[in-house]
């Protein structure tokens, strides 16, 4: 039980460094105390989760409690990595929120089909981003009962 007292680590996979800055600043602004780390595309995200390559030093660290995922990325995009994660026995239980600017309806439906837990449009203003980050963490960490690993 005590384990849960520590704010859960959030991972963000997004190729835009400005968006990475925005989300980590918003977390700080919201005084949530969650640690956040980043990868730049789906391939890196898989390496990160598997603790391979440049992430091998994280081998003893617990997996993130939540993944914020961008859809349009180079090398391996969000959809591809999403289907890989959701088929993976160990990673499939990590909640994934797609955070994107893409509004296409088909996109939304398709990603829910692939097992995404939530689909959120990136807010434009910093204030609403702070509010969003607050709601997301409130929702996932205070209201939802997550399976014990």
């Amino acid at each position: 039980m005590n384990e849960n007292l520590k704010p859960i680590r959030i991972h963000m996979c997004d190729d835009d460094p400005d968006d990475q800055l925005l989300v980590s600043d918003a977390l700080e602004e919201a005084r949530l105390g969650n640690d956040i780390d980043f990868t730049n595309n789906g391939k890196e995200l898989l390496q990160y989760l598997n603790r391979e390559g440049q992430f091998s030093h994280l081998v003893d660290q617990p997996l993130p409690g939540l993944i914020l995922l961008d859809l349009n990325m180079p090398v391996m995009d969000g959809r591809e990595v999403l289907s890989k994660i959701k088929q993976h026995e160990k990673f499939r239980s990590i909640p994934i929120i797609v955070l994107t600017t893409s509004k296409a309806e088909a996109d939304i439906a398709r990603t829910y089909d692939m097992g995404v837990n939530s689909f959120i449009m990136k807010p434009v203003s910093f204030d609403s981003l702070v509010d969003m980050v607050k709601s997301v963490t409130d929702y996932w960490f205070h209201l939802v009962s997550l399976p014990q690993k």
Binding site: D18, D19, L21, L22, D25, V124, S125, F126
Partner: peptide, 17 residues
């Protein structure tokens, strides 16, 4: 305008950092 706003938000973060 939404794109313009997005631009301003991102520039702000860069400035801050």
């Amino acid at each position: 305008h939404p794109a313009g706003d997005q631009l301003l938000t991102k520039i702000s973060r860069r400035l801050k950092h």
